[in-house]
């Protein structure tokens, strides 16, 4: 159509393979640094709170993203939460199948407006209900590095 000569033979089309060979090191930022230092050292979660908008941020932000107020005081909100929603995941990021499907959940932390996305551990899928209370399970302190991977997941509240 638009070009006057087209490929009409199946054996002719070719492709060129390549990659974008980049590697990254991310800092956690001002708020992220505080959050994960606290997870690592104290095993608890921090929030920031905007009294103008009445919003509490988990993960904490140094700013309120609704009014731009600077948020510089951090509140310990504990590690208890509620299942906001969940899914049974069968795949990894690269599209490959997981050996065992995992339950991923969005957990609202305490009475904040935020929360964390992580695995539910120690449950059968049929046991999970929206609104159900759960509690964070952390790695032992000695193994924590200051990362989302310091959290093993959220387990039953006993």
């Amino acid at each position: 159509m638009a070009i006057t000569e087209k490929i009409t033979d199946t054996t002719v089309p070719t492709f060129w393979e390549g990659a974008i060979p980049v590697r990254y090191v991310y800092t956690f930022g001002l708020a992220g640094e505080k959050f994960f230092r606290t997870v690592k050292d104290k095993g608890t979660f921090l929030a920031t709170y905007c009294d103008e908008c009445d919003i509490s941020f988990v993960p904490p932000k140094v700013y309120c993203d609704r009014c731009f107020k600077e948020l510089d005081s951090y509140i310990d909100v504990g590690t208890l939460g509620y299942v906001e929603t969940f899914t049974l995941s069968f795949r990894n990021m690269d599209g490959s199948e997981k050996e065992i499907p995992k339950i991923l959940a969005m957990v609202r932390i305490g009475d904040t407006d935020g929360g964390l996305i992580h695995y539910l551990e120690g449950f059968e899928i049929d046991e999970i209900a929206i609104g159900m209370p759960v509690k964070a399970v952390l790695k032992p302190k000695s193994q924590r590095k200051g990362s989302i991977e310091d959290i093993i997941g959220f387990g039953p509240v006993r």
């Binding site: 995941s89 069968f90 990021m93 989302i148």
Partner: peptide
Amino acid sequence: PVYNRPLRETPHAVAGLE
């Protein structure tokens, strides 16, 4: 990159949650 990606979950899981 800090809060979500390290779990290496399928991107479709975000839609699954929703």
